[in-house]
Amino acid sequence: MRDKNWTTMSATILLIDDDQDMGQMMHDALTPGGYKTLYAQDGLTGLDILQDQPVDLVLLDLMLPEIDGWEICRRIREFSDVPIIIISALGREQDVIRGLELGADDYITKPFRMGEIKARMRANLRRCQRPFAAEPVVHIDDRLAVDRLTHSLIVDRQTVRLSATEYKLLNYFLDNPGRILTQQNLLSQVWGWEYMDQTDYLKVYVHRLRRKIEEEANEPRYILTERGFGYRFQVPGS
């Protein structure tokens, strides 16, 4: 993903979908708005494109030939924090949760409305824009720090990659230490008001963050659950 100031309407979008008609439809719908579109008919081609040129957002189908979209999503997250929106006919709750757990930032079921796709794209692109950081590195305690220039986490002196959504969620926790944050507050501030009812998104991403920052994810000391209310970020011992 590019690390510079660009507008959401000039972003490069990679669509990975074996349906060529879908590829043409997305191209025709997005290019008039200023987006640059790239198309891959299978996952391996999509991975090659991601590694060869700047891409700002990926639209990923799950039912791909040879290697399915689940595996492609996992492989992308091994080397890139580019926002991923899964677009699939698989619409069960467990499918959505699985996609988010593999690192997708959003999940849209087919059939969809183009207006919804564009709105979700804009929301995800906004989350990954990197404004100037007054404090480039925020030290949480002796073992944790956040680099606000690279949007990465430092755990026990080791750099840990964060996706755009993981970073924004953690950053919002850091800006509100000790404060109980409701699910609705977190969803509106991190994802946007359009996601106010997507509580599964929040649960999955809190779990993902805990796996990265906690010594024991099942016994969290930083991101605490306030039952019936939401979550609270606390530095142990403070």
Rank of each mutant, 00 (worst) to 15 (best):
R122S: 07
I67R: 03
E214D: 12
I87C: 09
I97D: 02
R208E: 07
V204F: 03
L100W: 13
E219F: 05
E93L: 07
T225N: 12
R113A: 11
F233R: 02
T31F: 06
G230M: 05
L209K: 00
D106A: 09
F229L: 11
R92I: 00
Q129K: 06
L44D: 09
E78T: 06
I86N: 02
C128F: 05
G34I: 04
Y222I: 05
D17W: 03
K110C: 00
R74D: 13
D18Y: 00
V204P: 04
N185Q: 15
E66S: 09
I76Y: 10
I154H: 11
G69Q: 01
M196R: 13
D175E: 15
N171L: 11
I108G: 01
E216L: 05
P177E: 11
E78V: 10
F112M: 04
D52N: 13
L209M: 07
K4L: 12
I223K: 02
V55D: 05
D61R: 03
I87N: 01
V235I: 14
L15P: 03
D28Y: 12
L186Q: 10
V138D: 08
P236R: 13
I72M: 01
D21F: 06
T199G: 01
L169N: 02
L181V: 12
L60Q: 05
G178P: 03
Q158M: 09
W193C: 08
Q51K: 15
D106T: 08
N218R: 07
R2F: 00
V155A: 09
Q158F: 03
P220V: 04
K168W: 05
Q183Y: 13
K203R: 14
S152A: 13
L50A: 12
Y172F: 15
D3T: 14
H151D: 08
L149V: 15
R120V: 00
T182P: 15
T8C: 12
Q51F: 08
P32D: 03
E219Y: 11
A217F: 11
I67Q: 10
